[in-house]
């Protein structure tokens, strides 16, 4: 077993052990952070590894959240199949958006994804009769059961979040070390060169976006199941900016970066919101500071200074 695999399995084991050690408040926070870190990992596949800077990932998160939530609300399906529907919604949306948006690049890609995401947000508001718009809706406790386990119960919630996070973390580790992941990085570094080498870069970018969207939807669906709420605020621009912020802080194009970034930013904003109503000020300052002084993020600095092979 290489040191790299050991490091990532170590983090997974540590998070499992923390389940039995943490005080109640932190225990709940870490569960939430793990679910959101899944979103960040999904975002990182597109932005960090393939270089697709999207400003609209909230639409995939929301597709998972509403795909899962609306199925539970209006049908007889149970939690796990509903979550599967959420995943399918995210994958389908990512495929459709990708086919259109990937015809553009750079700034145009950012604006196109932003606009599509805004349209999804407005559509959620427009169909307020089903989605209850900004107010959102609560998912009944009876619907949040998997194999007789109540997902609303703190221990079960933590372990479910941990299981999802572990699986997605290891998938992303595997993905980026496989040939497909190498091609993603090649596209990020120089798309023209990758094309000259004979890779169909459009298909690889589409693949990256669909994987990224599906993982984001997995996070959105899990959020709805574990925390029992779906609301339009999760589809706003702010929720497209958050994963960008987490990934930039943790280190774009690193496997551990998204988790580290989510962890630090969550607590930074948690502390700031205790002090002032204007807690998003911290997010703004962090974005400016990161672009100016530390475009590599935490894990990027570790890779540059300490551990050259960190994936």
């Amino acid at each position: 077993m290489s040191r790299i695999v050991a490091l990532h399995l170590g983090l997974v084991a540590l998070l499992l052990a923390l389940n039995f050690l943490l005080p109640a408040y932190t225990h709940g926070n870490i569960a939430r952070i793990m679910v959101l870190a899944v979103y960040a990992i999904g975002y990182n596949i597109a932005f960090g590894y393939t270089g697709l800077l999207s400003l609209g990932h909230a639409m995939f998160f929301a597709a998972g959240m509403y795909g899962t939530g609306l199925i539970l609300r209006f049908s007889e399906l149970s939690a796990l199949p509903a979550w599967g529907v959420g995943l399918a919604c995210g994958a389908g949306l990512a495929l459709a958006v990708g086919l259109l948006a990937l015809r553009t690049a750079g700034v145009a890609f950012m604006i196109v994804t932003l606009m599509f995401s805004q349209a999804v947000y407005l559509i959620i508001l427009y169909f307020g009769a089903f989605t209850r718009g900004d107010e959102g809706f609560v998912i009944e406790a009876a619907d949040r059961m998997i194999w007789g386990l109540d997902l609303g119960q703190p221990q079960v919630r933590y372990l479910a979040a941990w299981a999802l996070f572990s699986v997605v973390l290891l998938i992303s580790l595997r993905l980026v070390r496989r040939p497909a992941g190498r091609v993603f990085v090649a596209i990020r570094e120089n798309e023209l060169r990758a094309r000259l080498l004979g890779y169909d870069t459009f298909r690889y970018k589409l693949l990256a976006l669909v994987i990224s969207g599906t993982i984001s939807a997995a996070s959105g669906g899990a959020y709805a199941l574990l925390f029992g709420y779906a609301g339009a605020s999760f589809a706003t621009v702010q929720y497209s900016i958050f994963p960008l912020l987490w990934v930039l802080l943790g280190g774009a194009g690193t496997v551990l970066g998204p988790f580290l970034g989510t962890l630090f930013m969550f607590y930074l904003i948690d502390i700031a919101s205790g002090l002032t109503e204007a807690y998003m000020l911290i997010a703004g300052l962090a974005l400016i500071g990161l672009t100016l002084f530390a475009p590599q993020g935490i894990a990027g600095v570790i890779r540059a200074r300490l551990w050259k092979d960190l994936p």
Partner: peptide, 9 residues
């Protein structure tokens, strides 16, 4: 764009 998003907030 990222920096001006920061400036926005």
């Amino acid at each position: 764009i990222v920096a001006t998003i920061g400036l926005l907030y």
